[in-house]
Nucleic acid binder design. Sequence first.
DNA 1: AAACAAACCAACCGCCTGTCC
DNA 2: GGGACAGGCGGTTGGTTTGTT
Length: 297
Amino acid sequence: MGRPPCCDKAGIKKGPWTPEEDIILVSYVQEHGPGNWRLVPTNSGLMRCSKSCRLRWTNYLRPGIKRGNFNSHEEEIIIQLQALLGNRWAAIASYLPQRTDNDIKNYWNTHLKKKIKTFQAARSNYITSSDSASSTIQERVHGGYPTEEIRNSGTSNSHILAHSSSTYASSAENITRLLEGWMRSSPSHTLSDEKLQHQRINNYNSFIMNQLNFNVEINSQLLLEDSVTGLDKTAMDSVFEEKKQFEMVASDQNKLGSQSQQPPMFMLEKWFLEENTGLMDAFLELSAADCCSELMF
DNA sequence: AAACAAACCAACCGCCTGTCC
DNA sequence: GGGACAGGCGGTTGGTTTGTT
């Protein structure tokens, strides 16, 4: 037997929020600030549980939330970070401050998961149809994705992104706009900002470690295959050295804790754009429908 | 036009973690 | 140390919308 749910009390309202309730909650938060959610229902008069209030605020009413379609750049970030971090939606959302973890999770479950599945099917189709015997580790490093085939299918992903909701969410958007003035007058640097920064540093560090480990793994395998020249060996040494140095820097950052600088997002973006250009371009140009038609052959 | 299926997403549930006493 | 509690998180549900037959 676990703890009884906080919303089991009689008289607690459930289900979709009404504009009136939103206004009450927004007014309350404007006056008292977000936090201490336990007191919100009692003090505001809302017949909602504290959890529900917090969720409504963080996911819909909080200022600065971007709603609507995800653009291709956001898709790229989500896909890469999901591959790296797994289903840690809050961590992923920390790199997309305008999106909520719930939004990202929903988008992943309804759009991206499906898209990736069909993409992988198309990819394996491509790999098995090509000469598998000539497949080398170099192809692994560069992905081996059927970029050209997908490009040549002459498609656009715009219809996948075309989704609009006529539900009450748009009203919440209006409330958010009303709050913009309030946000400007709020202190710009809070404790939660620092926590977020520290979390980003940790995420970023594991991201880089992952990449370096992958590089090391690839190079170790190449060494085992005994197919490298003297020039390659020098490059490999620098890969091992790079990893060693990063481990030292990451350890220092840990010691410094929240004093550290915000992780350099541009480096992440650089990696997305440069290292995975072919893969992501191919993926983003591939719509679910296109995948299906691709697989029909 | 109606019935049904699929897709979407807001909200809920329950577990986990951090903090306070 | 450990119990109680609040907040955070990810998985899941279920109501609504959209598409298809």
